[in-house]
Every structure is written in structure tokens, then in C-alpha cells.
Design a protein around this nucleic acid. Sequence first.
DNA 1: ACAGAAAGCTAATACCATTAGCTAATGCTG
DNA 2: CAGCATTAGCTAATGGTATTAGCTTTCTGT
Lengths: 206, 206
Amino acid sequence: MPPADRRARRRQETIDEILDIAVAIMSEEGVNGLSLSEVARRLGIQPPSIYKYFPSLMAIYDELFLRGQTMHLEVMRDAMATADPGLDALVAGLEASGRWLLANRAVAELLFWRPVPKFEPSHSAMAISREMIDIQRAALVDAVTAGQLGPGADSDEAVFLVSTLIIGVLSQAFANEPDLEWGTGRFTPLFPKLMRLLVAVYPPPS
Amino acid sequence: MPPADRRARRRQETIDEILDIAVAIMSEEGVNGLSLSEVARRLGIQPPSIYKYFPSLMAIYDELFLRGQTMHLEVMRDAMATADPGLDALVAGLEASGRWLLANRAVAELLFWRPVPKFEPSHSAMAISREMIDIQRAALVDAVTAGQLGPGADSDEAVFLVSTLIIGVLSQAFANEPDLEWGTGRFTPLFPKLMRLLVAVYPPPS
DNA sequence: ACAGAAAGCTAATACCATTAGCTAATGCTG
DNA sequence: CAGCATTAGCTAATGGTATTAGCTTTCTGT
């Protein structure tokens, strides 16, 4: 193994460790319960040493946002790839998305509810966001050409509608039934009904 | 005017003033940007003096939660009263709710997104929550007996579905288009479409 | 007019993020 | 392998936060 940069590797390990700890803390204490001091404590380090790895607390949120978004996109893309293109793929992707967000509550809140004031998503984050829209839009196009949905479904509006539905379900689940699994409780079981709803709004040309 | 309790009146005024300032700060700095010190600063007082009125920062959140919920319920009830009972009343109530929540963003976040960890809604808050469900449920019953919706609409599920839709729209609007008014942007205009959706899920008996 | 309550104050404690500046270890380079 | 620059840690300090304790002043109901 060429040493390449042994130092850089150890550094990267520490950075990853910090991010993992940060997620753990946010899961326990809430997203804005994250504190640099607590990260340092769990890492067995003094708080100012964290600044060797991140320039500020906000920078940690930033990196978590970016990584979360990337992972979320991957999960959805993978799920869509395993199903038939069109409506099936879309529904599979959305359900995978919902499950992942529910299982990664802290990151989900960071991604979609912006609990941290004066934290604006970066430029690269916006690019991923657009990609997310694109793959959903593509599935909708497939569904329209396959005659599963009406022509109106090939629109940004339809994408927004779809994400609105899923975010609505998750908002309710997070606020009222934390710690419940997907498919249990009063809200996440509504998901299949919501998906049928999509067909009702954009009925296929029969 | 009998002095009754002149002192109690002034005290109440101060309490109201504190709550108003708190809302103003949350609107500017985000819900968890609220700080006791900043309240004191704006009130021209030293921070510890706040404790003569509220036992803790959390107690302020608590009171804001309760008042917000009460106001929200009132707004919805009033709007429903001005429309024809049944589906019209429900839609009118929901739209009024959406408008009010959008216009009172900080309180809305407090009510539905729980940005403050370890803050559990009080018992009385739960009662108001139930009343909210009840009046919507009653409107749904009216709509079913009037033949505007199918029998399945007379269910808690339908109420949850309806609130899911509205919270989804608001989540998106808050996260992506803060400062936009109701009816503008990409999300709140979806509202009428969502309402027609309700009829699609619970179709009337023809 | 007076006693007691209310409403303010200051001082102190224990957190937090962040900056400055120092030291020791690490590992690349000659 | 020796040297040296970078790195990763440290401590100390600043200024912010919530909260508690205890004192003083001001008000007001009797």
C-alpha cells in the first residue's frame, strides 16, 4: 500500500468520525441540540481542536446536509432502478425515500425543515436537489408515455405535488409519532392511498 | 373602573409584551433563535428579571404554543362558520388555516414542526388539538350526509389525510419559499388541487 | 402610613462557540 | 536518517447563553 498520504487518510477518518458523532447527537438531542463541545467530549478531545477539522458548527451542518442529500438521492435512485420504469418506479422510489427519511430522522429534518436559522443550502446542494427533481420527472414522463398517467403528469407541478404528499406524511409522523416505524401509526400507512391519489389527479386517457 | 387588581393588570400587560417580543424575535431569527437575553434587551430590562414572569425559556415556548393553537383553532372555526356546512366549510376552514399558518410562520413551526427538543405539548394543548380534529370531522360528516363525499370520508383517516395535505404544502413553502404570500410560488397554489383530490379519494355515491 | 408583595437589580455559576497562541508529534524530503 | 514543516492537539481567554441567589426599591392594598 503506497502511503500516498497516510496523514490525509487519518484526517479523513477523524472527519467522518466527527460527522457520525454529530448525527448521533442530533438523533438524541434534536437537530439543534448539536453542540461542538459534546462532539469533542465524545471524541475525547478538547472543543477547540474540532476547529482543526471544521471551521465552524455551521460547516458541520453544511457537510451533513450535503451528505444526507447525496445518500437520499442514491437510495431513491436505487429503489427506482429495481422496479418497472414508469409509475411503479416512481412509487418504489418515493416509498424508499419515505422509509429512509423516517429512519434517518435527524438528517431528514436538516434536509427538509431547515431547523437551523441562517443556514442556506450551498450551490452543490442545489444541484443535487435538481437531480432529485429530474429523476422523478423522468419517471413521470415514462408513466405518461406508458399510459399510466395523464399528460398533465409530465410537469414540475406533478413533481411538487408528489414531494408535498410525502413531506406531509413525514411531517405528521415526526411531530406526532416519533419512534414509530414505517407502515405503523396513523400517518405513514396513508402513503399507498396518496399514491393512488396521484392517478386520480392525472387520470390516464382511458 | 374598579381597580380590581391594578397590579395584576400591569403584570398581564408585561407578560403579553414579552410574548409579542418573543414572536418578533422568532420571526427574525428563527424559532430557536429566541433568547431570553434578547427579550430582556428589547424590553429594557435585565435578563434575570424575565424570571419574575416566566419560570424558564421553555415556559415561554409553552405559552406561545398554547396561544398559537387557540388562535389557529379560532381562525379555522370562524372561516368554517361563514361557509355552507359540509365540504365548503371544510375547504374554507383549511384555506384559512393555511393562510394563517403562512402568515404566522414562527408560531406555525412551533405548532407543527417541534423545532425545540424536549418540549412536549401540555395536556391542555392536547385538548385543543382534539377539538381541531373534531370540527374537521364534523364538517366531513356533514359532507357525507349531504352526498358531497363518500361514506369513507367520515373517518379519522380522512382528517389525517386532510391535515397531511396542508402540512405538506406548508412544509415545502416554508423550506423553499419563505416570505412568499399564499397563492404565489410553486406550492401554495397546489392547495385547490389538493382539495379536489379529497373528492377523488372519497367519491360521492354518484 | 405602613407592611408586604412585586419587580426590578447585581453577582455568580455553568454552559456554549470561537479565537489566539503555544507545544508536541508526525511524517515527507533531502 | 536527520531535519523541518505541517498537523493535531493543548490551554487560556472572550463574549455569548440560561439560570439561581439574594438584595433593594417601588408600588399598592389595607
